[in-house]
């Protein structure tokens, strides 16, 4: 009996170790390759011990200065998209949670349908539209697109959170003279903050790494970091692997740190409403 339990625990430990290896090995490879001498990166057999070097980071700074400019663009677009998506999701999640009716139920189906549309279907027809409106290569346009694609998921996450907030609080606020908006922002929003954070995590991870929209709709002013990474890979004079891994590490670090700090809320977002009877 006791050996059986030991065997199960051992099995679990092995499974967790394998999952960790599967998830962390690529990250470890990127980080370690960014500080390996160039000729050691793809050495065969692989070199486990090496003298760390930061020349690739220096080279990235010197030869790809626009990568850091693109990082700033990524940050601007990510922040804008997150604010937009969270605000819209809060409002729509509140509406879906508190109101009932034929039209509102039907529109929920539309929200799901939006999630099913492959982004590429929208991008190409939007290209001439963005040009005609003068929105090509702007942060606002990119942020609006990212937010649009995440409002549907965000709405359902927020609805699940708001469903858990007693309606009596809304009614009490109404008795005290608060209107719908005041109730939403002063009463519901503070209580749904964890849900807003969960939505924010989703949008941030998506917007920070997104490539397709950025590729179609930006040129220089709003160009984001993933585009520069793709350019480093596509160098036909020979890929500078060390520089590429350094850039990938820089690109990876903020989002990795953010997700690690926010992991509690991410799990909460993923499981929101799961236990609702």
């Amino acid at each position: 009996m006791r050996s059986g339990r030991l065997f199960i625990r051992l099995g679990k430990a092995v499974a967790v170790a394998l999952i960790l290896l599967w998830s962390l090995a690529p990250i470890a490879l990127i980080l370690s390759s960014s500080i390996k001498p160039e000729r050691e990166i793809f050495a065969f057999p692989p070199s486990i011990t090496f003298t760390p070097t930061f020349v690739h980071y220096e080279a990235l700074w010197e030869r790809w200065p626009d990568f850091f400019h693109a990082l700033v663009n990524s940050l601007i677009v990510t922040v804008l998209a997150t604010v937009l998506a969270v605000a819209a999701s809060l409002c729509s999640g509140y509406a879906y949670s508190r109101f009932r009716g034929h039209w509102i139920d039907s529109s929920a189906l539309f929200l799901i349908a939006v999630r099913l549309i492959p982004p590429i279907v929208c991008t190409l027809p939007l290209f001439p539209v963005a040009n005609a409106l003068g929105l090509q290569d702007t942060h606002a346009w990119l942020a609006a697109l990212y937010a649009t694609f995440f409002v549907s998921l965000g709405t359902f996450v927020m609805r699940a959170f708001i469903d858990q907030i007693p309606k009596e609080l809304d009614e009490a606020a109404a008795v005290d003279g608060a209107g719908r908006l005041r109730t939403l922002f002063r009463v519901v929003a503070p209580l749904a903050a964890q849900g807003m954070l969960a939505v924010a995590v989703f949008v941030i991870v998506y917007a920070w790494n997104e490539f397709l929209f950025a590729f179609i709709f930006t040129s220089t002013r709003a160009r984001t970091a993933p585009l520069v990474l793709a350019e480093i890979v596509g160098n036909f004079d020979g890929v500078e692997w060390g520089v590429l891994f350094a850039a990938a590490s820089v690109q990876l670090a903020p989002v990795l740190l953010f997700v690690w700090v926010m992991q509690k809320h991410l799990v909460a977002g993923l499981t929101a409403g799961a236990t609702k009877g």
Partner: peptide
């Protein structure tokens, strides 16, 4: 001069897309 640079495939795609406007 304003340079806009892309990887090979995206560059060709963008050039032809711009030329079709």
């Amino acid at each position: 001069i304003g340079w806009t640079t892309f990887d090979i495939g995206p560059l060709q795609d963008r050039l032809l897309r711009e030329a079709s406007l």
